[in-house]
């Protein structure tokens, strides 16, 4: 879907923001650009919709070089969400969402329908929110509108620049979870910028860790945590490694396949092979059970005992010390 080929960005003052970035993002995938400030992650993102033009190298979307396209046309085809300050303060929620459809000359009725669908999708009842102004919304609500706006014209590709950055931790986590669920349904190709490793692990199918303009490692979260590519990646994960391992190791690879009798627990008493160790721990705590069935989608795949989980966790702790 998006392909960076040896992309560089130099500024006239000599600053080198991005140095030789090459990577591909495939359709329906969420790739998180992770790094500290000044790592080149935001520059890389903004080069995709040409808010920043690359100095050297090629970026293509579906095989088409973006530099051969009209910048304005290109941007209208790409969703763009940033921290909540990005909402137009003088426009209502509905007006904010309808900016791009209007630029694309959609019919009025189609826009209205789209607004309603999107507000429902992001969990804001339309009858209550369409006519509100951003100043009348909470941080979390603003961010939801920001997400709805980025999806307004149903673009296949969405760029998100720390979209949950300005939120308190609780709201942020709630929005992250909702967004993951939303994304599972709409399957957009997403390029997501954050400086927060936990957010990256949570949101990303893959993480592109950048430092000083260079891509340090591009891999799945689990792979990155288990096999840091170089000392920088290792240092970046730093003291969080144990915690990150618990978040990225999923039950699928850990439980013993068990063809025995299906215990037939209630859905909330089930684990999924995609659950992380932390998720499993949470479920044990909530259900107060000592043994839980694990499902791969709808298929029964085995059981996990609480002591087994504890043992795995202490092994992970051992690996990281």
């Amino acid at each position: 879907m998006i392909k960076f080929e040896n992309v560089y960005k130099f500024y006239p003052n000599g600053a080198e923001a991005v140095k030789g970035l090459s990577m591909e993002v495939s359709e329906g995938e969420t790739v998180v650009l992770l790094g500290t400030s000044g790592s080149g992650k935001t520059t890389s993102l903004k080069m995709v919709n040409r808010l920043i033009e690359p100095t050297k190298g090629k970026i293509s979307i579906n095989g088409e070089d973006i530099m051969n396209q009209d910048a304005v046309e290109l941007r209208r085809k790409i969703g763009y969400a940033i921290q909540h300050i990005g909402l137009f303060p003088h426009m209502t929620v509905a007006e904010n969402i309808s900016v791009v459809p209007n630029l694309l000359n959609w019919q009025k009725a189609a826009i209205e329908e789209r607004i309603e669908n999107l507000l429902n999708l992001v969990g804001l009842p339309p009858e209550e929110f369409t006519d509100r102004y951003p100043s009348q919304l909470s941080g979390g609500q603003k961010q939801r509108v920001g997400v709805a706006r980025a999806l307004s014209s149903d673009p296949p590709l969405v760029l998100m620049d720390e979209p949950f950055g300005a939120l308190d931790p609780i709201t942020r986590e709630q929005l992250q979870n909702e967004f993951i669920e939303l994304q599972a349904g709409i399957k957009k190709t997403i390029l997501f910028v954050t400086h927060d490793i936990f957010e990256a692990v949570k949101m990303g199918d893959r993480i592109a860790l950048m430092d000083e303009g260079k891509l340090q490692q591009l891999s799945t979260p689990a792979e990155m945590v288990e096999n840091p590519a170089n000392p920088f990646v290792e240092a970046f994960l730093g003291q969080h490694r144990f915690q990150l391992s618990l978040l990225t190791k999923t039950l699928g690879r850990l439980i013993e396949k068990n063809s025995g009798q299906e215990p037939g627990e209630k859905p909330e008493h089930r684990l999924s092979t995609r659950n992380s160790l932390v998720d499993a721990l949470d479920t044990f705590k909530k259900t107060r059970k000592n043994i839980l069935p694990v499902y791969d989608g709808k298929k029964y795949s085995g059981t996990l005992k609480k002591e087994q989980l504890m043992k795995i966790i202490s092994e992970v702790l051992g690996e990281n010390n």
Partner: peptide, 15 residues
């Protein structure tokens, strides 16, 4: 006018 707002407008494809 907040430059961020202008950049968003540009990023959304306004001329």
């Amino acid at each position: 006018v907040d430059p961020v707002i202008i950049e968003v407008a540009r990023g959304m494809g306004m001329k």
